[in-house]
Design a binder for these strands. Structure first.
Lengths: 173, 173
DNA sequence: GGGATTTCCGATCATTCTGGTAGGGATTGT
DNA sequence: ACAATCCCTACCAGAATGATCGGAAATCCC
């Protein structure tokens, strides 16, 4: 983790998601070049190797990467970067996208006492669909080619059109 | 909490957000009817009153509700339900929408060693904007009128057009 | 004024989650 | 043989979550 939160924040992605995504983008960049050792990724991204091992285990069990043991071994993407979405990676690392248990992917729990008069469920349903849509619409191939040379030349922030909306923070006032 | 997670899930909204949102929807439904005691809300929604006190304190400090002490006192929305969004409520309860510290609302931290070659930032930027957009586009007035009589008559699931996407769960495999 | 009601405030606490570390076994290339 | 590397399990410290508790202050009704 680069900067510690120190304050409550909503929808924060944990280091599992963050580190794991970095690893996947790196593997996507080196796709087709054979096995990549986790050590080289860890050093290149300045991340703790032993911890990455755990995360990569999840990615492997989800069928996103394949490992090869022994000297000269390492990991590589199990599929083409263009056919793996950010959603696949996040789900493998952090579980199904599920704002509430009644709005989960797969088999949502709906026998809820609130349900008959629940005014909030529609909100979580919408949120789930929105988040899943955003994550599933970005592939590793797209992420891997950023930042491009041209972008790096601009040296800076505002990488995408929409910088974070300037809405008031007011955290747990 | 109704059903315990028991398994890691991504983008889960804590009970602060869940309970607090229920309270706000309930206050929206009773808007214009004077003060509503927290006890009546807690009993109506089967939520722990003492815990709600804490959450409502956050909502009050954020200027979303106003409290009145003493017998016959209680809380009421500080503004019209149509001018308060779900995003306002979530931010008051859980802090700014911030997938990563470098993509926070307000003052994101960008002096990040990864930044020059970071392929993941664009993902979190997009995600932040998407989540904020979804939450800011729903008002308490809209939430409060659900489920309508007609919806309740249909007795069931699939309340909104999009039921949760049937994507594979595969949690922390 | 006395009590009942209700918001407000701060402390405490058990459990779970997060973000790792540590150690060792299995497999492969040289 | 040996080094590199994946693979697996256990452990651990600190923070966050989801509350509970006790009491102070304000307000209303009699």
């Amino acid at each position: 983790m680069i900067g510690n939160p120190l304050q409550a924040t909503a929808f924060h992605v944990s280091t599992r998601g963050e580190y794991g995504m970095r690893v996947m983008v790196e593997l996507a960049r080196r796709f087709g070049q054979g096995s990549v050792s986790l050590r080289s990724v860890a050093e290149g991204e300045s991340l703790p190797e032993a911890y990455l091992e755990q995360l990569v285990a999840s990615l492997r069990r989800a069928g996103l990467v394949s490992g090869k043991r022994g000297a000269g071994g390492g990991y590589q993407l199990a599929k083409d970067p263009s056919s793996v979405t950010a959603g696949d990676v996040v789900r493998a690392l952090e579980g199904p996208i599920e704002p509430q248990v009644c709005t989960a992917e797969g088999d949502p729990i709906v026998n809820c006492p609130h349900e008959p008069k629940c005014g909030t469920r529609q909100l979580w349903v919408k949120l789930q669909a929105t988040i899943a849509g955003a994550l599933d619409s970005l592939t590793l191939a797209e992420l891997a080619k950023w930042p491009s040379e041209r972008q790096r030349a601009r040296s800076g922030s505002a990488v995408l059109a929409g910088a974070p909306t300037m809405h008031a923070p007011k955290a747990r006032a």
